[in-house]
Design a protein around this nucleic acid. Structure first.
Lengths: 136, 136
DNA sequence: GTTCCTGCAAAAGCTTTGCAGAAGA
DNA sequence: TCTTCTGCAAAGCTTTTGCAGGAAC
């Protein structure tokens, strides 16, 4: 845990981001949990021992991390963005019944080599939707 | 054009959806244009000769079509949903500079056969983001 | 005639903005 | 000290909801 938090500080420093208390906590939270929290989930969780934390700060912080490539934002659920620590790239499955998001791996290749000629690709997202085994 | 609109009526009838004037127009609009309009774009375009059209109706209509599988909704742009006529399945590229969405084709396969064991898949979305050739 | 749909207004939910005070370098 | 960040409140947008009148069958 201590080790993990040192890594967090290092990753923030590497990007030239000022390591405020709030930023360290947000990134540590994302790195620690295996799910894909919304802004409100991050806010509610951290607020338990940071009573002064504001939603605006969570939004600002995630935006800073997003631009630095430290986190990724998922738009799989249409009405609220989810965030995850940008460790390894993977795909996401949204259960339309319980709302849970699962990770899985997939390989993607253009049908023809020319499909994306001249496009500069920054980010790839693969979203599947359906019903998960638990809800089936 | 006449032909196309007959097809629209047929597709709506096949799904057991009551073919109101508004529904026919929304689906015809989506079938006619090659892009991926937002609710507001659909609303503004149709309102020009349907002055009484309401945004609520556009939302309701798209929801009915979505459940029937006649249209697909894209959540590639995080703050507003886009819609397209569900003809053939393809992938989408969002230019982060001009906001334009491009279609392209891609093949996707799970890394292992077990990745999605027991998952009932309803929908697959592949979103790439970056800079398009025009903005590069 | 009955059912379902539409349009309006209001409300709800997520996100952004403006700004004064506080924290970091 | 100077810059940047935080927290609060208010505003902005997209989307949903409730309901009376209207259209479809």
């Amino acid at each position: 845990m201590e080790k993990a938090h040192q890594d967090i500080e290092k990753r923030i420093a590497e990007k030239g981001i000022r390591p405020t208390r709030q930023r360290l906590r947000v990134l540590a939270y994302l790195a620690d949990i295996p799910c894909h929290p919304t802004v409100d989930q991050i806010y509610s969780a951290l607020r338990q021992d940071m009573p002064d934390l504001s939603r605006t700060t969570v939004y600002n912080t995630l935006d800073v991390f997003l631009k630095a490539g430290l986190v990724r934002s998922l738009t799989i659920s249409s009405h609220e963005a989810c965030y995850e620590y940008a460790l390894n790239q993977h795909s996401h499955f949204l259960c339309e019944h319980c709302g849970k998001i699962y990770d899985f791996n997939i390989s993607i290749t253009p049908i023809t080599d020319h499909d994306l000629d001249g496009f500069q690709i920054h980010d790839k997202h693969v979203y599947f939707k359906g019903i998960c085994p638990k809800c089936f």
